[in-house]
Design a protein around this nucleic acid. Structure first.
Length: 310
DNA sequence: CGTGTTTGACCGGCGC
DNA sequence: GCGCCGGTCAAACACG
């Protein structure tokens, strides 16, 4: 685990893939094949099969959000990827709301954008039931999925979610649940389902990014704080173990964060809550600094941590 | 009463 | 055009 893992796609990985997991990947979102991929974490014991959305993954920017990377940016709509040039040209599912090249200017704008996104679904361009009119192709938020071995379907991640739907999944005995962040103006959604191949595995797919702080995690006035030990313990309790592998489609410098999927690693230093202009999330090196918080060591062996290639 | 869940209906996208 | 399927809505309901 000393080097960067090469970029991959589902198709590229298929040959070396266990059939069960591959099928699972297909189950997750057949429509997005190619944007998801599995990785065997090269010898990391006891786990980790990681499901990635290499197109949309956004490294965590905050320690306070006890949420997976894509929803970890509490202060803004982070671009889908730090490096705009690569995603804009390669993404099969472009980030709709945020121009990856353009820093989000300020909170109000971010909220407006979010609100607009939400409203667009419910109001003007929609029918009486809030659905979109024809000809307006739905644009999806960046998504990020991960697998977790857990007995509980809905893992606590520091945010409040409201279930808005449940559907039976084809070729699976387990239903898929749909959740939406209860925070106003926050359009983050997540889907939770169990693998039909391995009922002990929960597949959680996040869509969008939070525009607000975690309502659960205590925080300072101007800075994020690391997840509370209580929350970490909670995750430890709920999750046998789980790892998140971050990646950047370009400049591919994946870093094993080794945090529970619903608990992104805290940054090495505080990030301004309203620092919409600061795009610290894309700094992989920042993640390395997590060690300083001592939280990750609790969750994973230190040798699991990968260092970014310099 | 506020909040969250359940569940049937509905819609859009997509393949045939 | 049709049917399947994923995703969403929203009324009814449950619960603290």
């Amino acid at each position: 685990m000393t080097g960067a893992i090469s970029p991959f796609s589902l198709d590229a990985i298929e040959p070396s893939f266990g059939g069960g997991f591959f099928d699972l990947a297909a189950d997750i979102d057949a429509g997005d094949r190619g944007s998801f991929g599995f990785v065997d974490l090269l010898g990391i014991h006891d786990l980790p099969q990681v499901l990635l959305d290499t197109e949309s993954y956004t490294p965590p920017a905050s320690s306070a959000s006890a949420a997976p990377p894509p929803e970890s940016s509490e202060t803004q709509n982070f671009p889908a990827t730090p490096n705009s040039s690569s995603i804009s040209s390669s993404s099969s599912e472009p980030s709709p709301d945020a121009d990856p090249t353009m820093p989000t200017s300020d909170p109000p704008e971010a909220e407006d954008e979010s609100a607009e996104h939400d409203q667009a679904k419910k109001m003007g361009s929609s029918d009486s039931k809030g659905r979109k009119k024809k000809g307006q192709k739905r644009q999806r938020e960046p998504r990020f999925a991960f697998l977790t071995k857990s007995e509980v379907d809905h893992l606590e991640d520091g945010y409040r979610w409201r279930k808005y739907g449940q559907k039976a999944v084809k070729n699976s005995p387990f239903p898929r649940s749909y959740y939406r962040c209860t925070s106003a103006l926050c359009g983050v959604k997540k889907r939770v389902e169990r693998s039909s191949n391995d009922p002990t595995v929960v597949v959680t797919t996040y869509e969008g990014q939070h525009t607000h702080p975690s309502p659960i995690i205590p925080r300072g006035t101007h800075h994020f704080s690391a997840p509370s030990p209580e929350l970490v313990d909670l995750h430890r309790f709920q999750l046998q173990s789980s790892y998140v592998l971050s990646s950047q489609p370009s400049n591919f410098h994946p870093v094993v964060t080794a945090a529970p999927p619903s608990l992104p690693p805290p940054p090495p230093r505080p990030i301004p809550v309203l620092g919409f202009g600061e795009r610290t999330y894309c700094d992989s090196a920042m993640w390395i600094g997590l060690r300083d918080h001592g939280l990750l060591q609790d969750l994973i062996p230190s040798d699991v941590m990968m260092k970014r290639e310099q």
